[in-house]
Write a protein that binds this DNA or RNA. Structure first.
Length: 628
DNA sequence: GTCTGTAATCTTTTT
DNA sequence: GATTACAGAC
């Protein structure tokens, strides 16, 4: 009857077969979390649940796609109708439907972090002009952090300020004014930021019982991965969407909670567990790493997590290697040499990864790898959609989608020579009164009579709005204007042109402009990265979550770098311990931990800060000192 | 109003 | 070390 579960061990099987109701699976690293969810999916489908009755929430879109693809292969069923993706994606779907309930129109645009910062900077300037100059008033970057913290933890502005920057306490009133203006401005422009997606969706479901019933009735089961990284809003969302059926499975590892900076609270795990009738399953056997690595892992289990000892399934293996170098350059040279050696020994490049705490730690290595002509792929860092040229092109589409989006108007207008901040702002103000695409073209034409430089923009928008598909629209922007713009303004226009061509390719998979823009902003557009198969991976630990490789290098494990200098200042080391834990548990066979004698971190931190390497019992590792 | 050069200001992690 | 704010030239 359940022989399709033969691949699973006893503990995994129990978790998969759990009956209806609430259950939580506490999982260690490498214990088959993904496998449990995939088989749970399979099991539900075999028991007659329809794909459309399942909601699968994952940390990235790619993770969901992988699980669904595997379940599809195993069942042979068409699983298109499973609702799947990140919390932000799911909230976006809900909010598009009920936008009017929070004063938005369904075609609202989503501000990415940069846009949101720009808008905050704008209202900050206005409020400060009104209130008078203030010494050492927080910058827009700081304000954005405060606002975001406030939203993600559902605390008051005051608490957020005290928690993040107590020294700004005296400015609470003004900060609040800016916050209020920011909220108003977003609504006027028919825009939401990342946090609003969650806030509004939860708000609507809480306030409107008929909406709640309708949305919750769509599903019979909710499956949530990486539950330890959910924040209070996300917990609420799960509860709200499960009010009808009550069937929820969450999978969590409290030791791997590494997103507290965006409001993740691992207390969610405890809270969820403590609700009566919640079934608890534990899967702790480690299938991923060799015993030699698991032994080390057991010594770096974060202090403040549920006590646990991992049991290795795969015996033996090489001891993790601690490599001490003088500085970053030497570290980069060592890693490059070692990678070449590993490839020679038969390791697949795609099975090798380099992890680090912060993007900047990888710069030297990137140079060194390029010199040795080793191909690599960077998972994190400036994303394709965050580059200026891609954002420029998207801004054209955004103003057509949502004519009230002033940020995008400003971006578009300033591409034309002779148009600066002031003209752009005037145009944005003027254009935002248009109610639809047709009238927008009229309005811009009218405006360009006043400002001749903008007649080209009017002409272009008119052409673009006539094209049917998303890719044709982008193609028009590119051919008629942007290609030339790139040549005139960027020395590296060839690379940038290739990016735009890539964007056109991505767009070909979309019929809906709105969906295209949402997916790109939420980083959910699937990448066709056939070329990047079998390349060395460079990534932050945060982005490495849920992934595994044969050989893993962890760079710059120096006090001040990893743990980060901020964490040392704030004494917030618990989270750094968890990040380190995530890093070392990614490896199957070979683990290199690199540290430097002379770090570029401020002196007092690398001489006196917490050193993760010193906490590892010497007998568990091999040492390699290259610092002479 | 726009453009350009210089001084000031930070430096994490992500949807 | 790179981004951003500001001052002054056009």
């Amino acid at each position: 009857m359940t022989d399709y579960l033969a691949e699973l061990d006893q503990e995994q099987k129990q978790a998969v077969l759990c009956s209806s109701g609430r259950s939580i699976v506490i999982a260690g690293p490498g214990s088959g979390k993904t496998r449990v969810i995939t088989y749970k999916l399979l099991h539900l489908l075999k028991s007659g649940i329809k794909p459309s009755e399942i909601l699968l929430v994952t940390f990235t879109r790619a993770a969901a796609n992988e699980m669904i693809e595997r379940a599809r292969t195993l069942t042979g069923m068409d699983l298109e109708e499973i609702t799947a993706g990140t919390f932000h994606h799911i909230c976006n779907l809900i909010l598009r439907k009920y936008a009017s309930k929070v004063g938005l129109s369904h075609n609202f645009s989503i501000l990415d972090e940069e846009d949101s910062k720009n808008l905050i900077r704008h209202v900050r300037t206005i409020v400060l002009e009104r209130e008078g100059e203030m010494k050492h008033f927080p910058t827009h970057n700081v304000l954005q952090k405060i606002f975001s913290y406030c939203a993600n933890t559902m605390t008051s502005l005051r608490e957020a300020i005290l928690k993040l920057n107590p020294k700004f306490d005296e400015y609470e009133d003004v900060i609040e004014k800016i916050y209020t203006e920011y909220v108003i401005e977003k609504r006027n422009q028919n825009c939401v930021d990342y946090d609003d997606l969650l806030i509004f969706a939860v708000h609507i479901l809480q306030q409107d019982s008929s909406v709640r019933t309708r949305e919750a009735s769509k599903y019979k089961w909710i499956l949530v991965d990486e539950f330890q990284d959910t924040n209070i809003l996300q917990l609420n969302l799960i509860e709200l969407l499960s009010t009808i059926h009550g069937n929820v499975v969450v999978v969590a590892d409290d030791s791997q909670s590494i997103y507290s900076f965006r409001g993740a609270r691992y207390e969610n795990v405890r809270d969820f567990m403590n609700i009566p009738n919640t079934k608890l399953f534990k899967i702790q056997r480690n299938y991923r790493s060799d015993e030699s690595i698991v032994s080390l892992v057991n010594h770096v289990i974060p202090k403040r997590s549920v006590p646990k000892t991992l049991r290795a399934v795969r015996p033996g293996g090489r001891k993790p290697i601690v490599v001490e170098t003088n500085d970053k350059e030497e570290e980069a040279r060592f890693v490059t040499r070692e990678i070449l050696k590993l490839i020679e020994q038969g390791f697949e490049p795609g099975g090798i990864a380099v992890l680090y705490r912060s993007h900047s730690h990888s710069l030297d290595l990137q140079i060194e790898l390029s010199k040795s002509q080793i191909d690599f792929k960077i998972l994190s860092g400036i994303r394709f959609t965050e580059t200026a040229h891609v954002k420029d092109v998207l801004a054209f589409l955004k103003v057509l989608q949502n004519t009230r989006d002033k940020i995008s108007w400003g971006r578009v207008a300033r591409l034309f020579p002779g148009v600066g901040a002031k003209t752009a702002a005037n145009l944005a103000e003027y254009a935002s009164q248009a109610s639809n695409t047709k009238s927008i073209v009229e309005i811009i034409k009218e405006y360009s009579n006043k400002k001749a430089q903008l007649s080209e923009l009017a002409e272009l928008l008119s052409r673009v709005s006539e094209r049917e598909t998303v890719s044709d629209k982008i193609d028009t922007i590119y051919e008629k204007f942007y290609s030339q713009y790139l040549e005139d303004n960027y020395p590296d226009s060839r690379d940038r042109k290739m990016d735009i061509e890539r964007l056109i390719q991505v767009a070909q998979r979309y019929r809906s402009l709105e969906r295209f823009l949402s997916d790109l902003t939420l980083n959910e557009a699937e990448e066709n990265d056939l070329h990047s198969k079998n390349k060395i991976i460079l990534t932050t630990v945060h982005q490495a979550k849920g992934l595994e490789w044969d050989a893993v290098f962890v760079l710059s494990v120096n006090p001040g770098d990893f743990p980060s200098y901020y964490a040392l200042i704030d004494g917030n080391l618990d989270e750094e311990e968890r990040i380190f834990y995530v890093a070392v548990t990614r490896s199957k066979k070979l683990l290199y931990i690199l540290k430097q004698k002379f770090s570029s971190a401020p002196y007092m931190y690398w001489t006196s800060g917490t050193d993760f390497v010193k906490k590892i019992p010497p007998r568990l590792v091999e040492y390699l000192d290259l610092s002479f």
